[in-house]
């Protein structure tokens, strides 16, 4: 069993990190980490799980249960979890060591984007803000991610946590391509300095007025080329 790293957060001190990634994806991860000089998952003592093996199915099932408990009707169906998260990307999280193996407590799922300038969050599950901060900080380090993109709805608690990294750049403020147009798409730097800032638990930012008319006006401004950040 891997040795747990000394996470600063007291909630996470008894938890062990894990990573789900195909072997080929892991090789790409290691090469990227070497280039960045980052502390990658293996150096962190993370349990490495190959999702293409049948023996990994029970743990992947527990991750899906965690995703369902977090997202309810917008949980990923199994085929989306497999096709759009597990195979193309990598998952990181913290788990308790139970009698039946690892019991995941938190989950951060990341997939690359075409530009390769940022990674997209496809799952972010944690039972508390402090564990979400720990998962984001250590997960972005372990997966070599220096910029994140997140899709969520205005008012979602993860926006407050994500803003702890630093200024959030808005890409959409009103999103008709999503089932809920009151969806925000934003990105944030997640490099070493940003991670340190996040772990210091800074106060949340002041959010803009989120009525539909103001969000549509904000979206029009973004489409016109304005760069808008939440600071």
């Amino acid at each position: 069993m891997a040795v747990a790293p000394a996470f600063d957060d007291p909630d996470s001190s008894s938890l062990v990190p894990w990573i789900v990634c195909r072997p080929a994806g892991r090789a790409a991860l290691d090469a990227q980490g070497a280039q960045m000089g980052a502390q990658m998952g293996a150096q962190m003592g993370a349990q490495m799980i190959d999702p293409l093996k049948v023996a990994s199915a029970p743990f992947l099932g527990r991750l899906q249960a965690l995703d369902r408990a977090t997202y309810g009707p917008r949980a990923m169906p199994s085929w989306v979890f497999y096709d759009c998260a597990v195979v193309p990307g990598a998952l990181f999280g913290l788990a308790r060591v139970g009698t039946d193996g690892l019991e995941p407590v938190t989950l951060l799922g990341l997939i690359p984007m075409v530009s390769r300038q940022a990674e997209l969050v496809v799952a972010l599950c944690a039972p508390s803000a402090s564990l979400m901060r720990a998962t984001l900080a250590h997960g972005t380090a372990a997966l070599g991610c220096e910029r994140l993109t997140l899709v969520t709805q205005w008012g979602a608690p993860e926006l407050d946590v994500l803003a702890g990294f630093g200024p959030l750049r808005l890409h959409t403020a009103w999103t008709p391509a999503h089932d809920d147009p009151r969806t925000v798409t934003c990105s944030v730097a997640t490099d070493a300095r940003a991670r340190a800032r996040l772990l210091s638990a800074p106060p949340p930012p002041v959010w803009p007025n989120a009525n539909d008319h103001s969000l549509i006006a904000l979206q029009a401004s973004i489409e016109a080329g304005d760069v808008i950040e939440i600071v």
Partner: peptide, 8 residues
């Protein structure tokens, strides 16, 4: 769903 189209 549309959210899968957009996010995935």
């Amino acid at each position: 769903d549309k959210w899968v189209f957009y996010g995935a």
